[in-house]
């Protein structure tokens, strides 16, 4: 019935699976991202640390069954950036002294090259850690973990509703566009035409969204979202003392590294 246009269910990159990474408590995965970031920022410097972290993440991705997906995404997002960074810094970095090679009067320097590689490795380490989280954590699990930890449900709502409702918005935009093209609005063709065709979209989209928001908040109320008593959660997140210990360890490591950084 209404709009069975091609729809994406939600805006997540989650890949279904049953690996240990999938089963790991979402907070552990989140803390691991944070820890990686802090190590890069405040930990021991140099490429061996970064390469170690990337290798570690690679092994985790392999055992979690998301290596191919991670590789594909990394390759696509980092390759253009790599080319850009190496060129810019290789030629123009402020500390450039040692010339590696030259194109006529253009010189490519070692310092800039090393700098670019280092930044890229750091980025790579944090990105791979994040991908482990994004690929192996169903958003619903993160939300349940938040509610289970006793944090307010409105926080969970704030996190999850964009994931679910943005794709819905996207579908609606396409439906409205289709409706308007059906009424002779020429949105195919040159850029200017397409730009002009955007204006009639705004009214139905905004007004529709307002009506929808009002209805949805009523729906939440009548379904007891703000009911006074205690609530339960169907989706439970497996946790263990081992995982909790790991969380605390990571947490203290993060604190230590930051303190170490401040007083260095």
């Amino acid at each position: 019935m209404p709009q069975p246009e091609k729809q994406s269910g939600n805006a997540t990159l989650f890949i279904a699976g049953k690996s240990w990474l999938h089963r790991l408590h979402p907070f552990n995965k989140l803390l691991y991202i944070l820890l990686t970031g802090v190590i890069i920022y405040a930990g021991p410097k140099g490429w061996p640390v970064e390469v170690f972290l990337i290798t570690l993440n690679g092994i985790m991705a392999l055992t979690g069954g998301v290596f191919t997906a991670a590789w594909r995404l990394l390759w696509r997002s980092l390759l253009p950036l790599t080319l850009f960074m190496i060129t810019i810094h290789g030629f123009l970095h402020a500390d450039n002294r040692i010339i590696l090679f030259s194109f006529g009067r253009l010189h490519f320097y070692q310092e800039g090259f090393v700098f670019a590689i280092n930044v890229l490795l750091q980025l790579n380490a944090v990105l791979t850690a994040s991908l482990l989280f994004v690929f192996c954590t169903h958003p619903a699990d993160l939300i349940s973990a938040i509610s289970q930890a006793g944090w307010p449900p409105s926080l969970a709502y704030l996190l999850s509703s964009p994931l679910l409702l943005l794709p819905l918005m996207h579908t609606r935009i396409r439906t409205i566009q289709a409706a308007q093209r059906s009424r002779g609005l020429d949105s195919e063709g040159n850029f200017f035409k397409r730009f002009l065709a955007l204006f009639p979209l705004v009214t139905p989209l905004v007004l529709g969204a307002l009506v929808e928001m009002e209805q949805r908040s009523i729906a939440l109320e009548i379904r007891g979202f703000n009911a006074p008593g205690p609530t339960t959660s169907w989706r439970t997140i497996a946790d263990s003392t081992g995982q909790q210990a790991a969380r605390w360890t990571m947490f203290f490591l993060i604190i230590l590294l930051i303190i170490g950084r401040i007083f260095r």
Partner: peptide, 24 residues
């Protein structure tokens, strides 16, 4: 033929009026 061209020949009422209404 583009949708805009065809719209002079075939008019389509969408199920949900809110998908169509564009003016104030």
């Amino acid at each position: 033929e583009s949708v805009a061209r065809l719209s002079g020949i075939v008019a389509l009422l969408f199920q949900n009026p809110d998908d169509m209404i564009a003016k104030r």
